[in-house]
Design a protein around this nucleic acid. Structure first.
Length: 752
DNA sequence: GAATCTCTTGTTTTT
DNA sequence: CAAGAGATTC
């Protein structure tokens, strides 16, 4: 391939990054500056121009989606499959390492990955066994604590009990939890990373093997790395040693770090060039934005400028200023939704596409009034971030059957399904089994079998439990069958489908359909498999030729599928790209872009969220501001921001005040809009606002502005003075589908 | 052991 | 207000 194909589509800064000759390169990539493009072209550059073997390249991302997209784009650019190249998420790579080196990692061969639900279940069980009052100490907090420790690379043994005065029980639970997981072959998400890190530390021959194998590590979204991920990278790269030949290339944006609450440390991107000190290092800033209009960028820059300790970066564009940002002050959340909907309808009337529009909010509950309004007006929409496919209860039930079939030690799975569908095994019976299991220090399955043999259960309970045991035995994997056939059989024979179908809720039908979809997912997985596994199997040949130590045993298809399901939660809905409005939280909007964006609920306490306001200085509030920055920079052409004077929270109507972030945007970029609703029947409507003016209108499309008897009458298009505010506004009239007329006071930047 | 009623508690969530 | 957990009743 020609060098120009890699280089020509790039601007100067991008080119500098792609062709960097430094051993360690930090790319500070602002929103919309071509971050993914740089990563992809860098890899193409390495392979095509510097003749680096794909076998020596590792690219790490945070999400499966990002990994998939990167793989896709590399293949497109190089016109060849990304065989041998390790492209995956931190968790995915760690998982593969542990499968390969399960012995060295001190795991059992068929270890299972558990999600946070299962984790919570285990924590609850341990706390109950230990007699800890879960009223006083919510299991969720303990779970949080355990994960926090693991994210920071801390095992129980490394914690100092003296720092946990009157909370030592958490250490005990952590210890018991570790024991239980080890004994039953369970690995949670954080454990994947922690083990993979310990694999480096405790098995130097394994580490050495991979250090020889890889020459280039590339990391996406570097600002989101947590302590253990950072440590893992650092050890692999050899930067804990005096010298190394490993090249690291990391891309990130400190202004878009929004996962601090999940253990991500913004310091990592700040300290990268200091910590990765072998050889030369270079920092490249990508500041030219190809996404948004000038006004939108200026607003984003102004907001983020209020944060301290930034690495420093200012987005600019060749594009025109574009339209002003619109800020709408609504009466309440219903009015807010109505405004958003009205604007959307206008957008569509003018030929805009629905899928180019996004409504973003701080917390998921805020989607509700918007959904209500969209349904009312018949505008198709899609909400992201609901339950993902593999997180749905019925799917998890089916997966739990598979897990228990694959591994009888899986206590979490057993607990989940022993009485689902209900088969007469209640709390009491389960308690007896748990208790006995604890005494014998063995798994629930084996204990149940023994209890029946020893007559440790009442006759009725014993019959029920025996029925369950027989069922699982009957479902035992038949290698003759394809994966999809096995899944079909399990779903039917467990009576799960029947059970959910009979449920008297309106979701019953959907549940049955989801179970059918699971069969399809199994079919797809049979056909496609896991690209990382392919890469590793291929690499194995090369590795053994290189006297490597890898001994990858592909698991049976069922176990592979289970790992896939645990690591890849699946998209929220199966139905895909119908042209609809996109609703999602600000967090899930990161990395996406839309022509028209609505940021709703810009109110103090909602966004920034009240919990973030409690800490006095910096920290949390700055993260909220970064979230705001992420939100603003999602917009390409037009950005509307809305806030309400009164909002119903938990059933109560509360007064709210504009978000401080709104005041951080220069007034010159903003057009204030305030609506007065007026029914066509001619009834006058007045609103007192928190500002000093009140607005009223009549059915001639004229509006009165001012207070009390001093109302003046104005017509459409007229520029008026807003008494008491010193501002001026233009009167506009519009109608919605229901014949309701809206009189808008458009306080565009008319000179005062 | 299962169904029903009452009470509590409300961010964000890549894996 | 509305979901989920827990307690109470059938």
């Amino acid at each position: 391939m020609d060098i120009s194909q890699i280089i020509d589509p790039l601007n100067k800064a991008q080119r500098q990054a792609v062709c960097s000759e430094a051993q360690n390169t930090l790319v500070l990539a602002g929103a919309g500056s071509g971050k993914t493009r740089v990563l992809v072209h860098r890899i193409a550059w390495l392979v095509q121009i510097e003749n680096v073997s794909p076998y020596s390249i590792m690219a790490v991302t945070f999400t499966n989606k990002a990994a998939g997209e990167m793989r896709f784009r590399i293949e497109n650019l190089l016109k060849t499959p990304t065989r041998n190249m390790w492209v995956g998420t931190f968790h995915g790579l760690a998982h593969r390492l542990l499968r390969t080196h399960w012995k060295d990692a001190k795991l059992v061969e068929n270890f299972q990955i558990i999600d946070s639900d299962d984790q919570l279940r285990l924590v609850k069980r341990i706390m109950k066994e230990m007699g800890i009052d879960d009223k006083k100490h919510p299991p969720r907090e303990v779970q949080w604590f355990i994960n926090e420790c693991k994210d920071n690379g801390l095992r129980v043994a490394q914690l100092n009990p003296r720092e946990f005065h009157n909370r030592e029980f958490m250490l005990d639970v952590y210890f018991q939890y570790e024991e239980l997981c080890q004994r039953t072959g369970m690995v949670d998400f954080a454990e994947l990373l922690l083990r993979a890190h310990e694999l480096w530390l405790h098995q130097p021959h394994v580490l050495k093997h991979y250090q020889q194998r890889f020459s280039h590590i590339l990391v996406d979204e570097f600002q989101d790395t947590n302590t253990i991920q950072y440590a893992w990278l650092k050890v692999l790269s050899g930067n804990n040693l005096p010298a190394t030949h490993m090249n690291t290339f990391v891309v990130g944006d400190d202004d878009q770090s929004i996962y601090g609450w999940r253990g991500a440390k913004i310091e990592h991107i700040r300290e990268f060039t200091h910590d990765f000190k072998a050889g030369t290092s270079e920092t490249v800033r990508l500041e030219q934005n190809y996404r948004s209009t000038g006004n939108i960028l200026e607003a984003a820059n102004s907001v983020i400028a209020n944060n301290s300790e930034r690495l420093g970066k200012e987005l600019w564009t060749d594009d025109s200023e574009g339209e002003l940002l619109q800020v709408y002050k609504a009466f309440n959340e219903i009015d807010e939704a109505a405004y958003v909907c009205g604007q959307i309808e206008k957008w569509i009337e003018n030929g805009g596409k629905r899928s180019d529009v996004a409504i973003l909010y701080r917390s998921n509950a805020q989607s509700q009034p918007h959904e209500y309004e969209l349904v009312k007006r018949g505008v198709p929409y899609r909400v992201y971030g609901g339950l993902r496919f593999y997180d749905r209860a019925e799917i998890k039930d089916a997966l739990a059957y598979m897990r228990l079939i694959a591994n009888r030690q899986d206590d979490a799975a057993l607990e989940r399904i022993i009485n689902t569908p209900t088969r007469g095994i209640g709390q009491r019976t389960l308690d007896i089994i748990r208790q006995a299991a604890k005494e014998k220090q063995q798994n629930l399955w084996q204990t149940a079998v023994e209890l029946i043999a020893d007559k440790g259960l009442s006759a009725r309970a014993a019959t029920s439990v025996q029925k369950f045991i027989d069922l699982i035995e009957e479902l035992q994997i038949d290698d003759e069958l394809s994966l999809a056939e096995q899944v079909t059989h399990i779903v039917e024979a467990s009576f799960l489908k029947e059970f959910h179908g009979k449920e008297n809720s309106d979701r019953a039908q959907a549940k049955v359909e989801n179970l059918d979809e699971l069969v399809n997912a199994a079919k797809r997985f049979d056909d496609e498999g896991d690209p990382l596994l392919d890469a590793m199997i291929e690499a194995k040949d090369e590795a053994s030729a290189n006297a490597g130590s890898e001994s990858l045993q592909p698991l049976n298809p069922m176990a592979e599928f289970l790992a896939h399901a645990a690591l890849e939660a699946g998209e929220g809905q199966a139905d895909e790209w119908e042209d609809c409005i996109q609703l999602m939280s600000l967090h899930s909007a990161k990395g996406l872009e839309f022509e028209l964006v609505f940021l709703s609920g810009l109110e103090q306490g909602l966004f920034p969220h009240k919990n973030a306001l409690q800490d006095y200085v910096g920290g949390r509030l700055e993260e909220e501001r970064r979230l705001c920055y992420v939100g603003i920079t999602r917009a390409r052409q037009q950005l509307h921001m809305t806030h309400a004077e009164s909002r119903t929270i938990y059933g109560r109507s509360e007064l709210s005040y504009p978000s401080q972030f709104l005041s951080e945007i220069p007034a010159s970029l903003v057009s204030q809009v305030r609506a007065v609703q007026n029914s066509i029947s001619g009834k006058h409507v007045t609103r007192n606002t928190s500002s000093s003016s009140s607005f009223a209108s009549d059915d001639d499309g004229e509006v009165y502005i001012g207070q009390g008897v001093s109302h003046k009458k104005f017509g459409e298009g007229i520029v008026v003075d807003l008494e008491g505010t010193g501002a001026r506004a233009r009167v506009q009239v519009s109608f919605d589908n229901y014949g309701t007329r809206w009189l808008m006071l458009n306080i565009a930047n008319l000179a005062t």
